[in-house]
Design a protein around this nucleic acid. Structure first.
Length: 275
DNA sequence: CGCCCGTCCTGTCCGC
DNA sequence: TGCGGACAGGACGGGC
């Protein structure tokens, strides 16, 4: 589930529910989600601490405590962060439960445990965890976006999903953005025209804005995402059949009619310098 | 650099 | 009813 918009929602949950509150109890119900930290250390370092203002970078959520370390969360494919009353029955997938001083709880719920939670002792440690990430997708300017794609020989689908290029875009968002922009996923990223690049950037901004508003990629029928589960998926724009293929092992859908792939490896020399 | 594969996990669905 | 395999909105490391 979690791509940038979902994690932005979790940040909001953490901010409204946890910020300014003290953690009275840390309960690790499944140590399998702890990364590089023991149950004991998590408890001793976090119990008694007060949450500061959380922030997000790509699909990562950073939860600093006032005077101590920061919790650094990643939600993998199935993770979520919930704020519940302390007496609400536990879900079988509630892996870490933080009880706050107002009788509410922050719960890290995750079925598959593909990622988890780390503990960073200070800002430098947070920086180390996030070191390989590109800029957050929401913070990228049009010009910076152009530079990120510049010179890349890979398929644009793979490049956009690469967290070290730009952080936050996952499989669904990327398909949605490419479809909106009318760009085929197997286009070579560095070979896109100026117009295609602008179109891609505009689509990214719009898709992100709409998705962040509802804290998920909305499965509307007018979006490509809303057609993914159909037995015979069709383009929301032209109703033609969608094509399906794997990129980086991920199922990718696109409309061969609405999404062009005009620019590939073999191209004529184009005049002008273009930047 | 860029792509492909396996691996880490759990759960569901589909076909035999 | 049982079972193997594929697949699911992610990331990482190894190999080519």
């Amino acid at each position: 589930m979690p791509e940038l918009p979902d994690v932005e929602g979790f940040r909001e949950v953490l901010s409204s529910c946890g910020r300014g509150r003290r953690v009275t109890r840390v309960e690790v119900r499944d140590p399998g989600v702890l990364r590089g930290v023991t149950v004991r250390r998590l408890r001793t370092e976090v119990e008694g601490e007060r949450f500061g203002e959380p922030r997000r970078h790509g699909k990562w959520l950073i939860a600093p405590t006032d005077d101590g370390p920061a919790l650094v969360w990643h939600f993998g494919m199935t993770g979520a962060l919930l704020c519940t009353p302390a007496d609400e029955p536990l879900d079988r997938h509630d892996r870490v439960v933080l009880t706050l001083d107002d009788e509410r709880q922050l719960r890290y719920r995750d079925q598959r445990k593909l990622q988890g939670v780390q503990l960073a002792g200070n800002e430098a440690a947070v920086g180390h965890i996030l070191a390989d990430l590109g800029p957050d997708a929401l913070s990228v300017s049009r010009e910076e976006f152009r530079e990120l794609l510049h010179g890349r020989r890979g398929a644009v689908k793979n490049v956009l999903m690469d967290q070290s290029v730009v952080a936050g875009l996952g499989n669904l968002l990327t398909d949605e953005i490419l479809w909106r922009a009318g760009v085929a996923p197997d286009s070579v990223a560095g070979e896109l025209t100026e117009e295609e690049t602008r179109s891609l950037y505009a689509a990214m901004r719009r898709v992100l804005a709409s998705s962040v508003r509802v804290a998920r990629v909305p499965p509307r029928r007018t979006w490509l995402t809303g057609r993914r589960e159909d037995p015979d998926p069709r383009c929301p724009r032209c109703e033609g059949p969608l094509r399906s293929r794997r990129f980086s092992g991920r199922r990718t859908l696109w409309c061969p009619h609405c999404q062009s792939r005009s620019h590939r490896v073999e191209r004529d020399i184009h005049p002008g310098k273009g930047g």
